[in-house]
Design a protein around this nucleic acid. Structure first.
Length: 267
DNA sequence: GTTGAGCGTT
């Protein structure tokens, strides 16, 4: 076993086209052994949007997804992105063709993406201290929490943006319950992110315009509008019958035998 | 029940 060093950017002139030099299995996040379908595109301009990638990358075949990760708190683009194809062959071709291409004056680096997608929780951890920079948003909010936020006008049609803020702590004591309603409506007109909520409230980089073959709702979202057609009135929340919850006891017949109910007298 | 806070960002 010898440590195989992963070459971040293979020489552009390598004459072999088609097959990726990468061993299969490594990028096996997609489950198939056919080959990777996700490309990692580096050296993107920070104002680059998914749409900008779609055109050049879409030439090689139908795209499944384009995603440009951003910093959670600042909303700043991180300078790289993912382009996923339906067909691994297209991905390979695109990688070969696009690697080294100039987009917006920048030379792109295109490689196959690992599928090391992190979970949101892990991401938070990493933002907290893993990256070396400690965003202690509870105390010292990042300075840039004020402006670099693009003027996304809160979500419009989508009842809820993809962006879901971390669970808020309680409201400020000075805010009466009545006011809460207002503040909800007012959105962020006041000091947005008082050092707590991420200033970035924009909808994700995902563009509204569907790509050829891409669902307007996004590949991972189901079209839920069908099920809710016209039924604005929802049945009242289920009646939580007390007897029902009691019957959950492992000893439905003999309540006193329920261990949960049987607490030690000494405590 | 699968991620929209995605790995290789300055």
């Amino acid at each position: 076993m010898r440590g195989r060093s992963y070459t971040p950017s293979p020489p552009r002139g390598y004459g072999r086209r088609g097959r990726s030099p990468s061993p299969r299995g490594r990028y096996g996040g997609h489950g198939r052994g056919d080959g990777p379908t996700s490309l990692l595109v580096r050296n993107l301009r920070h104002d680059c949007r998914p749409e900008d990638l779609r055109r050049p990358f879409g030439q090689f075949g139908p795209l499944k997804d384009i995603y440009l990760p951003r910093d959670y708190y600042t909303g700043q683009p991180r300078g790289f992105g993912f382009v996923q194809y339906m067909d691994p062959a297209d991905a390979a071709e695109a990688k070969y063709q696009m690697d080294g291409q100039i987009l917006h004056g920048r030379e792109l680096t295109v490689v196959f993406a690992e599928e090391n997608r992190k979970k949101p929780t892990e991401m938070r951890d990493r933002e907290r201290g893993g990256r070396g920079r400690v965003y202690d948003r509870r105390r010292s909010p990042p300075r840039y929490s004020r402006s670099p936020v693009p003027s996304y006008g809160r979500s419009t049609s989508r009842s809820r943006d993809y962006y879901s803020p971390p669970p808020r702590r309680r409201y400020s004591r000075s805010v009466s319950p009545r006011e809460r309603r207002y503040s909800r409506e007012r959105s962020f007109s006041h000091s947005p992110a008082r050092g707590r909520s991420p200033p970035y409230n924009g909808s994700r980089s995902r563009s509204r315009s569907p790509v050829r073959g891409l669902s307007p709702y996004g590949p991972r979202s189901h079209n839920q509008s069908a099920g809710r057609a016209h039924s604005p009135v929802r049945t009242r929340s289920r009646n939580r019958s007390p007897s029902r919850s009691r019957s959950r006891s492992p000893y439905p017949g003999d309540y006193s035998r329920d261990p949960r109910n049987d607490r030690s007298p000494s405590q």
